[in-house]
Design a protein around this nucleic acid. Structure first.
Lengths: 284, 284
DNA sequence: GTCAATATGGAATTTTCATTCTATTCGTTC
DNA sequence: GAACGAATAGAATGAAAATTCCATATTGAC
């Protein structure tokens, strides 16, 4: 066999390997590129899995893994795997060390660093908060209402718009009928006019409240469309129109409120609804 | 598969195993105690080694390792080894448990509760990850590029759209000129045609990649408009068009990736840009 | 000191896994 | 559009590893 090992250097550590993969990714054939992407996206899997399990997960054949390794000068898949294992050995992933990593990767040294750290910390605080402030039974009721709805109307403006736009994306993927309300001012009310009591709405609004959202929620409530809402205050005008409502106070940094907890909440709600829908559909 | 042990509980994570070992260490026979000590002193070896290599290193027989594992209720050595591997694999062990500990508000009792907990834990993990994976100097460069831009073009589709829609909202409040690209397909290119090298773009794209986003970023890059991007893989087609790019892998729950870390990143970037702009304006 | 129960060492066995081999597909070039 | 070469899938192979088994040693009780 003609060994190209004198010309091409075999990467000896993970960084070198990563660089080599990125450099040559463009010229790699389809399946090998697939492996290349998988290996950099899921390095832990490569480290621990067996050739067979990795192959399944990356949707290639085991033999492809071997060929991939040989392409980069390794003798076989096993010797390539050593690189991925060494990577985990080197950096101690203990929890205590992880916190130190924050200061080792010292953002605060640089001008914008403290801003970055501040937002990450605020997001953490928000998430800690959410676990205690959301009542699981209310959550269950909310899921129930929205899962039984024919179409889910998503109401959100301004700062809460990203939340509902995520939900819209996810609902689309999950095949849940929805209407995103809050884009163009004019057509909103026409949309809402079509809602019946077999539908339901999910409204998000944080202070300062967008008065339209509250008005739209009230409109729906009057027409017996059940409304679930997420706000940052029990005094929110949304609360009174809602069958179920959640109070979720996001932590802030420099006056800018985090959205991480709301986002996590929205994802959980979305997936829980989709799951419940599936169960309901199967029960029929 | 082993029968579900009714009398002795099999430790399911490293912490539980460690506790069990320490508790029963005194009553263990000589060789098993030897293994116990070795396993807690060299957990990485257990994770990566083979039964034979570990046996040699711990100066026992391979069969002793199997006996040791069975002593603690595992089926064999391999299943015990999984615990040691999981310890290295899980980026931040502790959050799932911490949430369970918070079970005064016991979500997991209810159906949708575990979904909720799962997403909160995933968000926490993502945030831990972001602190280590974002290079502060790259962040600084990104802020610099975008702060000096006349107009910031925000490019995002699908799952990343909520990110840029938040940035759009915040930029509006902060009086930073921006253009949100990604709403209606038709007018996007006309918008981008107006971009000059005095502008800049921020593109977000996660796999599966929206090819439009990549194409638009390339278009801008060709016209010397500096592009900063946020992706979840070095393989993202965005990376090659970007002056600065960030790789940010969000943790997932049940296959749904969190957005919390990206959101925190976006907020930090937005505010950092606005702040820098103000400083630049004052300096004039 | 003897017996029984438990623990241990080391070989035998079985299982699992990486690698190799070959037929087939895919993509190019002439 | 035919023919060649590269790339790939999937089964076959052989090596390595985990586990089991059994003979021997050690420990503790009476």
């Amino acid at each position: 066999m003609a060994m190209p090992e004198t010309t091409t250097e075999v990467p000896q550590d993970f960084e070198a390997l990563k660089a080599a993969i990125l450099e040559r990714k463009a010229q790699l054939p389809k399946r090998l590129r697939q492996v290349a992407a998988y290996s950099l996206d899921n390095p832990d899997e490569i480290a621990f899995g067996t050739a067979a399990s990795i192959a399944t997960s990356a949707e290639v054949q085991p033999s492809t893994l071997v060929r991939f390794a040989q392409h980069f000068g390794f003798e076989g898949f096993s010797s390539l795997q050593q690189i991925f294992r060494a990577r985990l050995r080197e950096r101690t992933p203990g929890y205590e060390d992880r916190l130190k990593a924050l200061s080792a990767n010292d953002h605060s040294r640089l001008e914008s660093g403290s801003i970055f750290n501040g937002f990450v910390a605020a997001a953490h605080r928000s998430l800690d908060n959410i676990a205690t402030s959301v009542d699981p039974e209310a959550f269950e009721r909310a899921v129930d209402i929205l899962a039984k709805a024919d179409t889910v109307y998503l109401i959100a403006k301004r700062r809460s718009y990203p939340i509902s736009s995520y939900m819209a994306y996810a609902f689309g993927k999950l095949k849940v009928k929805y209407q995103l309300v809050g884009t163009a001012a004019g057509i909103d009310d026409d949309m809402l006019a079509m809602a019946t009591k077999n539908d339901a709405a999910f409204a998000v609004s944080f202070s300062p409240y967008a008065s339209e959202s509250a008005a739209q929620a009230r409109l729906l409530a009057e027409r017996k469309v059940p409304v679930v809402s997420l706000t940052d205050s029990a005094f929110s005008p949304l609360a009174e129109s809602s069958k179920v409502w959640f109070e979720l106070v996001e932590a802030d940094h420099a006056g800018f409120r985090s959205l991480s907890a709301s986002m996590a909440f929205a994802m959980a709600l979305t997936v829980a609804i989709a799951e419940k829908r599936q169960r309901l559909a199967e029960a029929e």
